[in-house]
Structure formats: C-alpha cells, structure tokens
Design a binder for these strands. Structure first.
Length: 591
RNA sequence: GGGGUGGUAGUUCAGCUGGUUAGAACGCCGGCCUGUCACGCCGGAGGUCGCGGGUUCGAUCCCCGUCCGCCCCGCCA
C-alpha cells in the first residue's frame, strides 16, 4: 500500500502518528510561509500543512502544487492549534505536518471550476465526465446508487430470489418502444434487438421452474429523451411464480421499507396507499399523482351546467367535462397575474382558464352567469374560503385532466405545499386495452402478456374480438408504483394460459402467424405447464434520483447521454469504417 | 417531427434603441504574505461574440439558415 489511511478517516486518535496519505489537491491556501492544502480522496478531505520549519524542500515544491495534482504526503498528524480547528468538517481537529511530498501526477488547468461545477453547463461536465465525477456531490450520488443496488441484491437474495442473466442480443418485438438494432454478420440482413426489458425471458424462467427471479439489468429504448429518460437505463426486474398481486405488492413494500431504512435511515410508511387508475385520474388528473399535497381536482359538471356560461355548457354538451381546483389564498392575484396563469394553462393545452375569486362575495368575469347559490356550492365543493381562487377548465376529458394535473403541480410548487418526504402510492386496475385511433385497433396498455382481473377473464374469453365497448371496459391485473409524482415501476400478473394468450393476440388483432413469428417461443412454453406468475420492474435510475435529491437521472448515471443520445465524452455514436459495414452487409443512405 | 430556451474570455454571466476601445467575478500566469480553511494584497495575460449567409456606412445586437446543450409535446411504461 502506498498510503496508510484515507483522508476523510483521520480523527483525533491519529494525533501523534506518522503516516502517508494520498489524494487530489482540492484547495490550496499559500501564505508564502505556511501553505495549507485540502487533500481530497473518495472518503473526504484532510488539511495538510507545509512549513519551512518542518521540511524546506517539501515546502519549496508545495508552492507549485495546483488544483487536482495527485500527491502523496508523509508526515506527523497533529492536533490543530487552539482556535484554528474547523468544526464544519469531520477531520477538522487535525492536520498533517508534511515532511515528505511526492507529486504523483500533475493536472492541466481545469476546464471548469470543480467547486462550482454544478453551475457549469452539462455539455462541459459530460465532455470531462472524469472531472465531474470526481466532485464529492457526484461521488455521493454514485455511492448511494451502489448502496441501493446492494440493498436490492441483499434483500432479494434473503428472500430466495435467484439472479439470472438474460440475453442482450435478442429479438425485436413489434409492441412497445422502438428497438435498438444490432446487425448480424453471420446472418446477412438479420438483426438482433437490444432488450427493452427481459419480459419474455423472465416469463420463460418462470415456466422453467425457477419460481423467483431477479436481475439488475440494462434496458434499451430508442425513443426521444427527457430529464428522467435515457436511451439505456437500469431496471430492478423481478418475477415470481405462484403469487397473486398482493404477494408482489407486499414484497415490494417491505423491500422498499428495508432499503430506505438501510440507505437513507428513513422510515417509510407501509403498506402504500392504493388508488385505482380511475380514482387517480378523477382526483389528480393523471396516473402518477404526487401524494405529498392535496389540491385535488373536483368535478363541477352538475354545478357548471346550472348556469348559462356558454363555454361550460358547450364542453358538457359535447361529452367533455368541467373540473376545478382551489388556488389557496390566490384571490389577491392581479389581473395581469391571472393572464399569466391563463397563458400557462394554454401552454398546457387548454383553450382558456375560467377563474372565480372568493373575495367580498364572488369576483369573476363569469360570476354573472351563475346564481349566487351555485357559486356558493362551487366554493363549498372546493373548500374555497375567503381569499381563495377557484380555477376551472372545461374541455374534452383528456385536456381537462392534462391541464389541471399540471396546474395542480405548478400551484403545489408555487404555494409551497410540497414538503420533502417520500410518499408512495400504487395505481391499480388499469384498463387492459387502449384504443389506438391511428391504427384503428386496440393496444395493450401495459403489455400483451398482462392478465385481465379475475372478474374480467371470462368476459374477455367469451366476448367478441370486435366488441369495442366490452373490451374497453376490461381491467388489467397491472400495477404501477409511484413515488412523489414519479412512476418508478410497474408490473402485472401475467397470462399463463395459452388459450387466454391466444385470445389476447386476437383482440389485439395480431394474427396466428404473426404471433407465431414474434412470440412463438413464449406460446410454446405456455403449452408445457406454465405456473401462474407475475412480477414487476423498477426504474432504478429514477429511484436513485429521488433518493439522492438529484433533479435529473443524468446525475445518478456515471456516463449519461445527451438529449440526442450522444455521449459527449466518447463521441458515440460515430461513423464506422466502410469495411465494417461491408462485413455486416449494410449500406447507408446518407453521410 | 413540433414548441420553448440558451450559446460572448478557461468557467459563470453582463453587454442599453445597431455605433467606434466587448466588461465583471472566479480561474490562469507573475510577485508579496507563517494559522488559513471560498485566505488576503498587488500586477498581468486571455475573445473566431457557436457556425454560414443577408440587411446596413457600421452587426455580439436585426433577418434567414445551420450546429450544439437544456425543458416540454408527440413518442416512450
């Protein structure tokens, strides 16, 4: 070993001992006489002192030290003189008096200030990711990620889950996201796909009798990126046999509780609240509600219909809805501020925003369309009191939900209603199918292997594949796990009967031949004694983001890609040699 | 594919209604400094104003195109 101890581990018992420590020069304070350096390694920082009274040559060399030089220093650990201790760091009682300094490596002037790197542009941080990752904040993030992953592994191992790897070179599936394709040299014109998830393989593992499987696995989706979406991301993927939905939800709750306790020391509340998809939409306007605050949506159709405000009446008549939320204490907003709020609503897709101030009665351009009694009922339903602002959206249901759910979040932030906390919620009873207007057929809302809920199973089997109304009413035995308004995972009880699976393909308008070509191996497997099974996949990156307080998953991924799926450090993707393309039997169009 | 926003010194940003010499802070370089911890003080260097075109006597500023980052819609579970 070329060092005796980590910088951040130095404590008072080390006083008096002579040792060697190594690290990066973090900050330097060169007084000409005394030189102080904060030496940093992964564990933390330690102040070292160069004095001409202790070692003339080391002191001489120390003048030339610069940020991020890698050095080794040997010397005596001493108690800091009275009054010079630094209580703000764990090593603040001690300092090393260096008698020997070795510069292990020099560093060029940095492209950005490490201490203010959080403010530096992401493009720059990504290009020099090795420097960005050297920052304590990023190191903390990745250490937390490690502990969380270890938490999952330990917990699932304890519960007798087996970690089994599945192929990365796999087969393109037509449903779901766009695949990343990999050309096959040995099979001209044929392509592998990188997995969007190990879905089919984990089901096969259940058929194969492993009963409890998990994997911390990379998944790939060639879709456009967001702050919480990367083209490659990590799932905690698991599947179990002989279980029902409550078994899986219970296991995940206990697992989360364990991991939050062990990594953050936080005690989260279990069991998690459960909301049906419909209830979530009604009350919050989306299927991933942030449960840390109220501001719930209220249906106003009956009251709105009792006036003669044309916008409301039109919306209701054409099958739309009128819903509202209560902007607590916002009656003081000026006309101009209300205009801004309105254009915000419009940017979310609304045609307009109707508002009624509860202020000396009711103040609003639309108040005149409603009898006093209805206005009072509206206020009552929204629990609006003097000083509040009632905000209405009237439109098609999709628009109303979309706009109000976003306004709810916006107001929650603005009114400071969102306290730091971890509020989980399960969303259940999703529709099994979703009508695709463009393709004029049903799509599986979760995926085509999801079982209907028990009561709907016979309905689907007995029903006609063209019965749109019946099919739209079917509920899936699927569940999403939502944390603070972020979807962090989802799963379902799968179809384990071949006849049900075939019916599902029929409903989805996937022909026998097509099903055979695309999922034949799963259908085959279902013939040979498939146990009832189900599982879930958790989005690890999002979970770590929330647990570290990061604002983007890019801050919890060591080497993330930009919004154009470009790696600024390595330069991937890149052009390749014509020879490589030729071997792969590939000709490109452009460039 | 679409909407929004940004790109000026190594970095973060300012730069008025288009005007002659493009600034600040931090960093960098040189000097001074023996108790600092964002050390301090003095001095200095450092600019393809993303790129291309246009309008203009004159463009960092206006217009068009383009590239890149970020946020969002579509897309994606």
């Amino acid at each position: 070993m070329i060092r005796d101890k980590n910088c951040g581990d130095i404590r008072e018992p080390d006083i008096g001992s002579v040792m060697t420590i190594t690290g990066w020069v973090f900050r330097r304070r060169d007084h000409g006489g005394l030189i102080f350096i904060d030496l940093r390694d992964r564990s933390g920082i330690c102040q070292i002192v160069f004095s001409p009274d202790v070692a003339v040559d080391a002191h001489e060399i120390a003048h030339d030290l610069r940020a991020e030089y890698v050095i080794s220093v040997s010397g005596e650990m001493r108690k800091r003189p009275d009054g010079t201790e630094n209580p703000s760091i764990p090593t603040g009682m001690t300092e090393m008096y260096v008698h020997k300094l070795v510069v292990l490596n020099r560093a060029a002037a940095l492209p950005f200030n490490m201490e203010e790197a959080a403010e530096a542009g992401e493009a720059l941080r990504f290009r020099h990711r090795y420097l960005d990752l050297r920052r304590p904040e990023m190191q903390q993030n990745l250490m937390m990620r490690h502990r969380i992953i270890k938490g999952f592994r330990d917990y699932l191992d304890m519960k007798s889950f087996l970690e089994i790897e599945t192929p990365m070179l796999t087969k393109s599936t037509p449903e779901g996201a766009r695949d990343y394709l990999v050309p096959s040299r040995l099979n001209p014109g044929h392509f592998y796909a990188l997995p969007q998830s190990p879905q089919l393989f984990k089901q096969i593992l259940m058929v194969a009798g492993f009963e409890k499987y998990f994997q911390i696995v990379r998944c790939f989706r060639d879709e456009d990126l967001r702050a919480d979406r990367q083209p490659e991301f990590t799932q905690v993927d698991l599947e179990m046999s002989f279980v029902d939905m409550d078994d899986i939800l219970g296991l995940i709750e206990d697992m989360m509780k364990t991991i939050f306790r062990e990594t953050l020391g936080t005690d989260i509340e279990t069991p998690f609240q459960r909301l049906s998809y419909n209830e979530s939409m009604e009350r919050f306007g989306n299927d991933k509600p942030d449960m840390r605050f109220g501001l719930e949506l209220k249906d106003m159709a009956d009251l709105a219909g009792g006036g003669n405000f044309k916008v409301f009446l039109d919306a209701l008549q054409s099958g739309g809805m009128v819903k509202a939320i209560n902007g607590k204490g916002m009656a003081a907003l000026s006309r101009k501020e209300l205009d801004i709020l309105t254009s915000e609503a419009q940017s979310f897709g609304a045609k307009g925003l109707a508002w009624i101030k509860v202020k000396n009665g009711f103040e609003s351009p639309i108040a005149k369309f409603f009898p006093e009694e209805i206005l009072r009922s509206m206020a009552k339903r929204l629990q609006a009191e003097e000083g509040d602002l009632m905000l209405f959206i009237a439109d098609r249901s999709k628009v109303v939900y979309d706009v109000l759910s976003r306004m709810r979040l916006e107001l929650g932030k603005r009114l400071n209603l969102i306290q730091p906390d971890y509020k989980f919620v399960w969303i259940t009873d999703f529709p099994l199918l979703e009508w695709d207007e463009e393709e004029e057929r049903f799509q599986a809302m979760h995926h085509p292997f999801t079982s209907p809920i028990a009561g709907d199973m016979e309905k689907m089997l007995a029903g006609d594949a063209g019965d749109r109304e019946m099919l739209s009413s079917l509920k899936a035995m699927a569940y999403d796990i939502v944390l603070n308004g972020n979807e962090i995972g989802g799963g379902s009880i799968r179809i384990h009967r071949r006849d049900v699976q075939k019916k599902m393909f029929e409903v989805l308008n996937i022909s026998d031949t097509e099903a055979e070509v695309k999922f034949g191996f799963l259908l085959d497997a279902l013939k040979y004694g498939a146990p009832p099974h189900g599982g879930i996949a958790l989005g690890l990156d999002r979970l770590v983001m929330l647990m570290t307080g990061a604002t983007s998953i890019r801050d919890v991924i060591a080497f993330p890609k930009t919004q154009k799926a470009f790696c600024m450090m390595s330069g991937a993707p890149a052009l390749v040699e014509p020879k490589q393309l030729k071997e792969l039997h590939i000709k490109t169009d452009e460039v």
